[in-house]
Computed example of a mutant assay.
Amino acid sequence: MSDSLPWRRPAPFTQTWQITQAHLDHYNHVNNVAYLSQLEKLAWAHSNALGLRFEDYQACDRAMVIRRHELEYLQPAHLDDTLICATWIIDCDNKLSLTRQFQFICTRREKTVFEAQTRFICVSLSTGVPKRMPQAFKTCYGAACVSEQA
């Protein structure tokens, strides 16, 4: 199913998100905080799938932390909607930063309901000071970077 959806870029890493009452705000739409939580879960799942786990971050005293989020709410998502949530790494300078793009599509409507872009900066876990990416980050994140439009 996810292969036939209108993705912005090729070969997305995807997860399915089933909307429950706990995800809704007082307008009965998915709450902003729920979207942010899903972005974090998806980014970690993708990193894990690429071979980087939090233990790897700890071992090299590095982390990729959020510098900037850009969020675009295109259409509301509602109770019982199923969203296919996709992410790609669209830029990795192999020094300090990488950028992820996100796209969430409602399967019922086959329409994009949410898009985001997040810029991450590499820092020392112990000090929070920006530090160059270790080789493991360059290898995993750099190799996963896609730039062609779908």
Rank of each mutant, 00 (worst) to 15 (best):
D3A: 04
D3H: 12
S4G: 13
L5T: 10
W7D: 04
W7Q: 04
P10F: 02
A11R: 04
A11M: 05
P12A: 01
F13N: 03
Q15E: 14
Q15I: 13
W17P: 03
I19F: 14
H23R: 12
H23S: 11
L24V: 14
N28E: 01
H29G: 01
H29V: 11
N31R: 02
N32F: 09
V33G: 13
V33N: 07
A34H: 08
A34T: 09
L36C: 13
L36Y: 08
S37Y: 11
L39K: 07
L39H: 04
K41R: 15
K41V: 15
A45N: 07
S47W: 01
N48V: 14
A49D: 11
F54L: 08
D56P: 01
Q58I: 09
Q58L: 13
C60P: 00
D61S: 03
D61K: 10
D61M: 06
D61C: 06
M64P: 00
V65S: 03
I66H: 00
I66D: 07
I66Y: 09
R67A: 15
E70G: 09
E72Q: 14
E72I: 10
E72N: 15
L74P: 03
P76Q: 05
A77H: 04
H78Q: 14
L79T: 03
D80A: 15
T82G: 08
T82S: 12
L83Y: 10
L83C: 15
L83M: 14
A86Y: 01
A86L: 03
A86K: 03
A86G: 12
W88P: 02
W88C: 00
I90T: 15
I90N: 05
C92T: 04
C92L: 09
C92G: 07
D93M: 14
D93Y: 05
K95H: 11
K95Y: 09
L96P: 03
L96K: 14
L98S: 08
L98T: 09
T99A: 08
T99K: 05
Q101T: 12
F102T: 06
F102A: 02
F102I: 05
F102Y: 15
Q103T: 10
Q103G: 05
Q103R: 10
F104A: 03
R108W: 01
R108I: 11
R109F: 12
R109L: 13
E110M: 08
T112S: 13
V113G: 01
V113A: 02
V113D: 02
V113K: 01
F114I: 01
A116Y: 06
A116W: 03
Q117N: 09
Q117R: 04
T118S: 11
C122E: 02
L125A: 10
S126T: 15
S126P: 06
T127N: 08
V129H: 04
V129S: 06
V129I: 14
K131L: 08
R132Q: 04
R132C: 00
R132W: 07
M133C: 09
K138Y: 07
T139Y: 10
C140S: 13
Y141N: 07
A144T: 07
A144Y: 00
C145L: 12
C145K: 05
V146S: 09
E148D: 14
E148Q: 12
Q149G: 03
